[in-house]
Design a protein around this nucleic acid. Structure first.
Lengths: 210, 210
DNA sequence: TAGCAATTCAAACGCTTGTTTTAATTTTTA
DNA sequence: TAAAAATTAAAACAAGCGTTTGAATTGCTA
């Protein structure tokens, strides 16, 4: 039982509420109630509601992309021109999301739902973050995939990588879980998701289209 | 220039507003304004806001799934035991979404965004619709894919078909369009999306995983 | 420990929300 | 055409919204 700062409690509560009920029902009153703090504390620490949401996104997105980039760089050990295994590349992209999901406080798991919802809302904050800060990394991955799959035209790789991101977003948002038989425990379901997702990505990228 | 009933104008305006700004910003005042009608007309025709949203979903979802089912049945002409081409099966699932997108009044295109957002919001109405009414059709498609891909275990098919639905949802919601170079016109972008999506699905389902 | 800064708190502000009520109007039916 | 039903309209309702204010309280520093 660690004692978190008010700012952290607010960020965590916001994250939880977005994941549970979506942006439509999010209010700073609910946030402050769940965070055991005062209404005004939110405006004091974050200025306004929108900036709070931005920081919820930034907090974990920075970490997620850093880990992805490091794993990709570790693969070819600085030599960007060297082709490496497609499965490893996709693992470097997908697995960090898995790690987030499995973190002991489950904050990462919750965040992936937030991320999926921000995608769907076409959130301006998210769009700016992705466009301004993370496109270089996404391009690096696309380039690595191109080296691993020289037979696929660049355009096809572009499309399929984006579709894969779509499937990842969908899976991490747990959208399909409802329509799946609830036989396996939730943690197992998520692990299985990522495993299947990597295989899915490999399959879609190794088969040359007609 | 057709003259639409108040009820239809309300449904269309709701659809447009959800697609443009998401559920979070949706208000019946904005709806009534855009529909050129009165506030109370919404409650008069639909009871309440939630029921209005439900009917927005039902209106086009019924049609979408009916078309999908018909196209699938036309493939094997009543003989469910006959295996047919995987590409055709995926076409029967994906193309109806394309047709909706290309309908002359663009209502379908708008709806696909609504659908993507309802997914992300984990909308109860959508969940009930999918669970109660459309799971049989989804299972029929999964069964057809199984016959077309006898080498893939059923479980793998289940996962990949759901990932494909995720990618479809993502693409139809236009989530990725922002990160793609805006060189091609929007209509062309959507056509290209579906074409690539089918190839993507075929690729992911024909390659046997290790 | 005194003083200063950082933080928390209760209360209120103006505004928007979904819904209801009641009256006016249009459309349909007899 | 007269009565009845369906629809539209204006106004008000209570409740919730994000934000601001100014005082109370806490934590830190000198």
């Amino acid at each position: 039982m660690t004692t978190l700062s008010t700012k952290e409690r607010i960020l965590n509560s916001t994250e939880n509420l977005i994941a549970e009920n979506g942006f439509a029902e999010l209010s700073i009153r609910k946030i402050s109630l769940q965070a055991h703090t005062n209404l005004a504390a939110i405006n004091y620490h974050f200025g306004n509601k929108q900036e709070l949401i931005n920081q919820v996104l930034e907090r974990r997105l920075n970490n997620l992309f850093q880990v992805r980039e490091k794993m990709l760089h570790d693969l070819n050990q600085g030599n960007k021109k060297m082709a490496c295994n497609l499965e490893q590349i996709l693992h470097a992209f997908i697995a960090p999301a898995l790690y987030m999901i499995n973190d002991k406080h489950q904050g990462g798991k919750v965040f992936m739902k937030v991320l999926a919802r921000a995608y769907a809302e076409q959130s301006e904050s998210l769009h700016e973050l992705l466009a301004n800060r993370y496109t270089p990394i996404i391009k690096e991955f696309a380039e690595a995939i191109h080296l691993a799959c020289p037979d696929l035209p660049r355009e096809t790789i572009f499309w399929r990588f984006h579709f894969l991101i779509g499937a990842l977003t969908y899976a991490m948002g747990d959208f399909g879980a409802s329509s799946m038989s609830k036989q396996m425990p939730e943690s197992e379901y998520f692990n299985k998701s990522v495993e299947e997702l990597i295989q899915f990505g490999v399959a879609s990228l190794t088969s040359v289209s007609s």
